[in-house]
Design a protein around this nucleic acid. Sequence first.
DNA 1: GCCAACGTTGGC
DNA 2: GCCAACGTTGGC
Length: 166
Amino acid sequence: MKKSNTTNSKPNHWLMKTEPDVFSIDDLANSPNQTTGWIGVRNYQARNYMRDQMRLGDRVLVYHSNANPSCVVGSATVTRTAYPDHTAWDTTSPYYDPKSSPDNPRWQMVDIQLETKFPTPQTLQMLREHPKLAEMVLLRKGMRLSIQPVTAVEYKFIFSIASRIA
DNA sequence: GCCAACGTTGGC
DNA sequence: GCCAACGTTGGC
């Protein structure tokens, strides 16, 4: 059997940042089919994760950045793999990039569907308290990447504590 | 609003 | 390819 990521049925785990003033977990909940295209990623590393590694059914932690406080607020699943981000060639979009075009799209997006809005969002401060999460990418100094890999252990742990009713 | 830590751009 | 200047992110 050929080794290939595309035939591996085990989902990957991710964390995706969004500024709640721009698009919040409630906006996702209120979206048609609770699904949205993840427009506006303009960072190559984040794009490459989407383009090269995100698969249908991958699990996503949704994180509110630039918030009071910033926290993991919910979970979602990938329901469509990477496709061109049309906002890049929309001159009226805040995400417009003149170097992208329909013929030669530079940026990609995926679709995600809400799974859970957590009853107990986990703030950065709360996450830092757990030794289990010591190596988490989100908690590393200077880490700005808007799409990050999360280990299965980290994902399950955060899902578990955020699901508890406080 | 501050500013550290990144990422990108562009002259050379 | 180097790297200074500039722009952005995002916690605080």
